[in-house]
Design a protein around this nucleic acid. Structure first.
Lengths: 208, 208
DNA sequence: CCGCCGTTTGGACGAATGTCAAGATTTTCT
DNA sequence: AGAAAATCTTGACATTCGTCCAAACGGCGG
């Protein structure tokens, strides 16, 4: 057995976990580049300064590596959107801020979002991914719901849909925008901004 | 060269195309079962009564086979939704009919829809699929738009969003429902129905 | 009956895959 | 410094992949 040691005494501030993270980050880049179907352990290793054998020192098999990647993506993801809602004074301002935020996220790292949708779809076939993917979906749903309920609060009214529906609708806009953006449609980002701005008032009771 | 003949004289009512369709249908079943990443030409052949070598007699390579599958899926897809709008007398009836239709489509063939989302995501990585996938997306958008504008007509008002936005929103609901349905959530179908029903009035100007 | 031609088989090929193990290297502890 | 543990490389393994090809099959016109 040359596998990972059961107990690692020294370097208590786990260097082991650090290396796992480093390798997972490289794997995420590979997945963003090529997509799950075309990403092998060797191509992942090429995204690192190490050889392919090392991956099996830090991960039992490919599935464990990928699920670790999914979890790692989630960590970066929620951290990014944690700031969020912020300092909007009017519902209109909040809608614009959210729309700009989503459009910026798409413009900045379209390949990462492409990878997310790829992994989410893979979870429909590979049950091992399902729980982690569902967790990410939940945190995204919460992020959307914070915005929707904050919007309703500023508008002095309340939402007329469930958190799940709100997320599904926003996600639909985002995914379609991603598809069009990656196909080279110039208007995709602007259309997303407009679509998101207009979506907010659709989801709350008519304010007096 | 053992490739497909340039000219086939007899059996003018193309037996050749029939066989291609038959093989593509088997391939679609395999893709629905396993997903693109796990579907090889040999596993496709196992879904037929033929051997794996035959696939290269009818298709130049794997990409041509898959793109043919996508086109074939589209054919079945548009034919299915062509009927559509039908005989609703009130906006409420139409919304219910559409909601039931979408929920029934999901309940009847969830694996086919899972495959569709898989292939649509693959098109983000494999440009060869992009055009055909975009065509299917367009016909789905049109299908949704027929419903939305019919709803607006029955309600004596007009839509307040673009066809693209309407499709993105419906598709978001549908995809999220598929995720939850395949995860075993009992309420997924009912939630989809309710979500779709409630979405219609959000997309049209307030009727007097 | 033969020979033709479209069809189908089955096996082969090189390349790529996930996995594993043996050894080399580096780090850490005494 | 020397021993032990942790880390990393290298090459190999059995499979499986897409692709190709020679041979066999089967029906039909001569």
């Amino acid at each position: 057995m040359t596998s990972a040691p059961a107990v690692r005494r020294r370097t208590p501030a786990d260097k082991f976990e650090d290396r796992r993270r480093e390798l997972a980050d490289a794997a995420l880049l590979a997945l963003a580049d090529l997509g799950y179907a075309r990403t092998s352990l060797r191509t992942i290793a090429e995204h690192t300064k190490f050889s392919h054998g090392l991956l099996h020192y830090y991960f039992a098999d490919k599935v464990e590596l990928i699920t670790y990647c999914v979890r790692r993506y989630k960590a970066a993801c929620v951290q990014r959107y944690e700031g969020g809602v912020g300092d909007a004074a009017t519902p209109g301002e909040l809608a614009v801020a959210c729309a700009d935020g989503l459009a910026a996220a798409l413009a900045e790292a379209p390949l990462m979002h492409r990878m997310w949708y790829d992994l989410r779809t893979q979870s429909l076939f590979e049950p091992a991914f399902r729980d982690d993917v569902a967790e990410i979906d939940e945190s995204l749903r919460d992020m959307i719901w914070r915005n929707v309920s904050a919007y309703a609060g500023l508008a002095g009214t309340e939402p007329t849909c469930s958190p799940a529906d709100a997320y599904a609708l926003f996600d639909g806009l985002f995914q379609q925008a991603l598809l069009r953006h990656l196909s080279g449609e110039e208007t995709a980002l602007d259309d997303l901004r407009r679509g998101v701005r207009e979506l907010f008032p659709r989801l709350v009771r008519l304010g007096g």
